[in-house]
């Protein structure tokens, strides 16, 4: 799905989290929102997901105005920084949650739900853990379960907030490949937020560098390195 961000602005109290910001994301791209904390990258992601509302500006999904859509209507697969798994449900129940929450007419049969959950567990290469509770999983396993849960609703896009932030270095490397793989198999437009420039440059097709509520530069990793548009971008990429 092609996403168009048109002059989106957002303030929290008196501080401007996003100056009017515009951005066009081509269908099927893997995009990194890169910047230091307070740059507005998470706010932008949450606005796309329908968790935050802009004061002005529009969001267009495939050319249709989606600004007024509720979270539920957006059907964005959202992976939270700390995964936000439902701790009183098993992994299976977590992944099945979105399908079971659908109105009766759109809800798949019980067997169909089970089949899809099993398939997703295979996709994240954890076919054995359906019966476990989140408390019994490692950090990397939790992240992958959160990803599978977001994919279960057949999302129109995938939004990830610091998906590797809570993991140690070794697991982080492994899971980067995992995300790339899943992106390539599903073909979903995927946007992830990170403050780690190495991660953004290695993983993303398109990197959006943000600072103080503004977009500093948008480009492919190689272009950014070769032609940084500002001193900030140059310094941030070499840090």
């Amino acid at each position: 799905m092609h996403i168009e961000i048109d002059e989106i602005a957002k303030t929290f109290g008196r501080t401007a989290a996003l100056q009017p910001v515009s951005l066009s994301i081509p269908s099927g791209a893997l995009v990194a929102l890169l910047g230091p904390s307070g740059s507005g990258k998470t706010t932008l992601l949450r606005i796309l997901g329908g968790l935050e509302f802009p004061e002005s500006g529009r969001v267009l999904f495939d050319g249709h105005d989606a600004t007024g859509l509720t979270v539920q209507e957006r059907r964005a697969g959202f992976v939270f920084q700390n995964y936000a798994l439902f701790r009183h449900m098993t992994v299976f129940e977590n992944i099945a949650y979105g399908l079971k929450a659908r109105p009766r007419a759109l809800r798949p049969e019980k067997e169909e739900i089970a089949r899809r959950v099993t398939k997703l567990l295979e996709l994240i290469r954890l076919p054995e853990i359906g019966g476990r509770y989140p408390a019994q999983l490692s950090g990397g396993q939790r992240q992958r379960v959160a990803l599978a849960r977001a994919l279960a609703i057949e999302p129109r896009m995938l939004l990830l907030d610091e998906p590797f932030g809570a993991l140690d270095a070794k697991v982080r490397k492994e899971l980067r490949h995992g995300l790339r793989e899943i992106h390539d198999t599903t073909g979903l437009t995927t946007i992830f937020v990170t403050h780690d420039q190495e991660e953004a440059m290695e993983l993303a097709d398109l990197v959006v560098v943000m600072s103080m509520g503004r977009i500093e530069q948008v480009g492919r990793p190689a272009d950014l390195r070769a032609r940084p548009a500002s001193a900030f971008v140059r310094e941030f990429l070499t840090a």
Binding site: A9, L51, E55, S56, T67, T70, V71
Partner: peptide
């Protein structure tokens, strides 16, 4: 100040 959007948005929580 920019005009407020016509629809009153409700946070997910």
């Amino acid at each position: 100040a920019p005009p407020r959007p016509a629809r009153r948005f409700r946070a997910a929580t």
